[in-house]
Amino acid sequence: MKAELICAGFGGQGVLTIGKFIAKAGMKEGKNVSWLPSYGPEMRGGTANVSTVVSDEPIASPIVSFPDILVALNQPSIDKFGPSVRENGVLIINSNMCPHGCKRTDVQIISAPMSDIAAEIGSPMVLNMIAIGIIIGKTGLIKYETMEEDLTSFMKAKNPELLEKNLIAIKRGIELGKQ
């Protein structure tokens, strides 16, 4: 098994964190993982993106040219990375920020108003957790339990309320992913 992910969006939307949580969970589940962010001026308000690889085999290259999964939190991310998603790959779109969507028909597209759902849950910060949930629901790349354990370990004492919202967000994402 080897899955290559690209998560992309505006700086501040938490795209790097999506990759980090996936990599961390993969590591905890005994997989080989790598996480390679874009960095520098690109991060400052522009489009941020991160390549994440989760694999049973040792990872030779951490660079993802043709992702199996693309998480696009804004339209520029679709425009930039959409064409390189592998055939039959998964394209997860935040429809609130992607007015034009993606025209490809050879990939599995999951489009959801993630910003609205996050607002509904009560915190715009949980948007990235919805995306992680969709990945779990659609691909089973990592387990929900691993995420819950990880989030609980550092959030429970500090901010139990936010932990709860995060877990709700992941679960909502899983439902969306399974549809």
């Binding site: 790598s34 996480w35 390679l36 960095y39």
Partner: peptide
């Protein structure tokens, strides 16, 4: 190099 510096791995 920048890749090894910026990349996260276990």
């Amino acid at each position: 190099d920048g890749m090894l510096g910026q990349m996260m791995e276990p």
